[in-house]
Design a protein around this nucleic acid. Structure first.
Length: 637
RNA sequence: GCCGGAAUAGCUCAGCUGGUAGAGCAACUGAUUCGUAAUCAGUAGGUCGCAAGUUCGAUUCUUGCUUCCGGCACCA
């Protein structure tokens, strides 16, 4: 005779065990209709689960986060069911829920095509309409293994083998198809009506590249058609921001097969933006008392042996180049070079901290399949810096780095982050005591800045703990750019030293840090973040002057000269085209401001201003315009 | 690197089962001199990614290579 307490505190009394479905029904038909599962305390159960005892319960509806997850999970099963009906020879493996959807991996001889996906989707709709009840059964492990082996579902049998003997095995049935699953699931297939299969791709069994490759089908599923369409629309919008598309449209950069994959060509427009970014970066680093370095692009292989790179990262380093019987390597990192400069003279504790920064171009042989626009390339420039300091200086230095990071990211309108602090892994170098001290210093620096962070337990590199910062872009995606890493390894490997106040030699602590990460990748992120509509201070062309007809050419030229002399990046369009056509062209080129001059403007010695967004700011004095833009530049808006 | 797909004019794309290519935009020329997202007309533009094979004949079929796309694996 369970007494059930609902989330709002209401007490419901029943004189016999009841299912969640009945409870929902007793509360209201609307709730019953949208119910997909139930919850006792924090545990989730099927709607059909019978509640025997007094408990705190709640009903999970299809719109809730948990409800959606159940719908997605059940849709994954629905897809597997459909695949088995169409391709009985396919073997099912696993089908988890992922962000916005699900996937299911199948072992099958002939890979699925896009046409197959359509067929499968149709079959899914068919099964969903049949309104098949989804029921749960508990099986013994050995029965389950035997069953799946009998029907040649070897992967499933293997999965079951790995489940501990004492655990209950639940099997879910819909129609004559069944699958091992922890559940819960929606009570019937007709609750699944807003889904779409999105793509098919290969994926390794158990995620191991030495295993067989399976066929993975991805899909998305939602509580209703409206949410599904909303999501599909979002996907389309995200696609419109693709930096490869915009990079081509705005003539920012290219990557050319003729030169090789993953090597970036910065066109004049992209180069202009990069130059502005780098100038700003340099200014800020000089202000923060860094000194700037330049180092070579290649060095003797033996240097990379000393640094340990050839041991750990050989596969992603380019092969050695031979010259005069010596082997050289393209640099995959800048740090050993900075170390060499450090070692070039005797250092005293009075010299520390030393802060050296370099926009250093490195080359890494990424695997072909990994290359992706500007996001993953083979040659890129890191905004790298190394700080050499004493153990006691670590916290202050980290605080300084965080300050600089926040200021620089803010300039690019990135003000929301997710911060990770990665601690000592199982395999590590250096003394426990210094790890503890250093990790504490990182924590201290973060908390004193009031920054929230999550601890990534044992996620540090073998050579030291680190802070990673992920920034949130305009459509909520996270990108890891900043990383601040302590290194107890290189100072020892290279036998770096300083003379302490005690007159003895000590190893300095080395901090590696990059704020933007790779300039190429950061540029890609910026393109997507701004959708190509760069703020005034970054825009390759800031102003375009458009004439109505030929008679304003001279006036336009004077305006042009004046703006250019002030330092604006300005262009002039004297083409024999209608004003509408000119506006369209430059709007599509994402120029922030247009100055339009016709006979009216010439007559009153004024200009008419329009923005890229389409706002007509009307006519104004030239000086007014310059003042407005100068403010905008200072504010970096 | 692995699985699948793709590569045609500067860009976006069409070209059925083999008979050496077509549109729109851009470019160029001319007309038009125009008031806030496309003025009109004409011209030119292609080793159909590269190499080999099958064939009387290959953009089309086969193989290899290169690059790109979607995932997987990898990412100091």
């Amino acid at each position: 005779m369970p007494n059930l307490t609902l989330p709002d505190g209401t007490l419901k009394e029943f004189d016999q065990p009841v299912s969640f479905a009945d409870v929902a029904k007793s509360i209201g038909p609307g709730l019953f209709k949208s119910a997909v599962a139930g919850k006792i305390e924090e545990k989730i159960f099927d709607l059909s689960y019978l509640i025997n005892n007094d408990s705190n319960i709640s009903i999970i509806t299809r719109e809730s986060e948990e409800g959606l997850e159940i719908i997605r999970h059940s849709t994954a099963h629905l897809m597997a069911h459909a695949v088995k009906e169409l391709y009985p020879e396919a073997e099912v493996t696993i089908g988890p829920v992922i962000e916005n959807g699900f996937y299911y991996d199948f072992a099958i001889e002939n890979p699925f095509t896009d046409e197959d996906l359509e067929e499968i989707e149709k079959k899914m709709q068919e099964i969903a309409k049949q309104d098949l009840p989804i029921s749960r059964e508990v099986w013994l492990k050995k029965d389950a293994v035997e069953h799946f082996k009998n029907i040649s579902e070897n992967y499933k049998a293997e999965i079951i083998q790995d489940i501990p003997d004492d655990e209950d095995l639940s099997i879910y049935k819909q129609g004559d198809w069944l699958d091992l699953c922890r559940g819960p699931h929606v009570p019937s297939t007709n609750l699944l009506n807003a889904f779409k299969l999105t793509k098919v791709a290969g994926a390794y069994w158990r995620g191991d590249s030495s295993n067989k490759m399976l066929q993975r089908i991805y899909g998305t599923a939602w509580a209703d058609k409206k949410s599904l369409n909303h999501y599909l629309e979002q996907l389309k919008q995200a696609k419109k921001r693709d930096h490869r598309r915009i990079g081509k449209d705005l003539d920012l950069f290219s990557i050319q097969g003729e030169a090789g994959g993953g090597l970036v060509f910065w066109h004049p427009n992209g180069s202009k933006i990069r130059q502005v970014i780098e100038d700003y970066w340099r200014t800020k680093h000089l202000e923060a008392e860094y000194e700037l370095l330049y180092t070579p692009h290649i060095a003797l292989d033996t240097l990379w042996q000393t640094s340990g790179h050839t041991d750990y990262y050989q596969e992603s380093m380019y092969k050695p180049i031979e010259d005069e019987n010596k082997l050289y390597r393209l640099k995959p990192m800048n740090c050993p070079f900075h170390v060499l400069i450090y070692k070039n003279q005797l250092r005293s504790y009075r010299d520390l901290p030393i802060r050296w920064a370099e926009l250093g171009t490195v080359y890494r042989h990424e695997m072909t399949g990994a290359l992706h626009g500007l996001m993953r390339v083979r040659g890129f420039t890191q905004d790298d810096a190394h700080i050499f300091c004493t153990e006691d200086q670590v916290e202050t230095e980290i605080t300084n780095i965080l300050n600089l990071t926040i200021e620089i990211l803010h300039a690019f309108t990135f003000d929301q982050y997710e911060i990770h602090l990665a601690t000592k892994p199982e395999k590590f170098v250096g003394k426990d005591s210094i790890w503890t001290k250093a990790t504490k210093a990182l924590e201290q620096a973060l908390s004193s800045k009031g920054l929230e962070y999550v601890i990534d337990e044992a996620g540090g590199a073998f050579y030291g703990p680190k802070i990673d910062i992920k920034i949130k872009d305009a459509i909520g995606r996270l990108w890891q750019c900043t990383t601040i890493q302590l290194d107890f390894n290189l100072p020892e490997r290279f036998d770096m030293q300083y003379i302490g106040s005690d007159g003895h030699k000590h190893n300095p602590v080395m901090i590696h840090r990059t704020l933007l990460g790779s300039i190429e990748r950061f540029f890609g992120i910026l393109i997507e973040h701004f959708e190509g509509k760069f703020p005034l201070w970054l825009a390759p062309t800031q102003i375009t002057i458009l004439t109505i007809s030929e008679s304003q050419n001279n006036y336009a030229a004077t305006i042009y000269e004046k703006l250019k002399n002030i330092g604006f990046r300005v262009k002039i369009d004297l083409r024999n085209e209608t004003i509408g056509s000119k506006i369209r062209d430059h709007t599509l080129k994402k120029v922030p401001y247009f100055i339009i001059v016709g006979n009216q403007e010439v007559k009153h010695d004024q200009i008419s201003v329009r923005t890229q967004k389409g706002d007509d700011l009307g006519t104004m004095e030239f000086d007014q315009f310059v003042t407005n833009l100068t403010t905008e530049l200072t504010d970096k808006k």
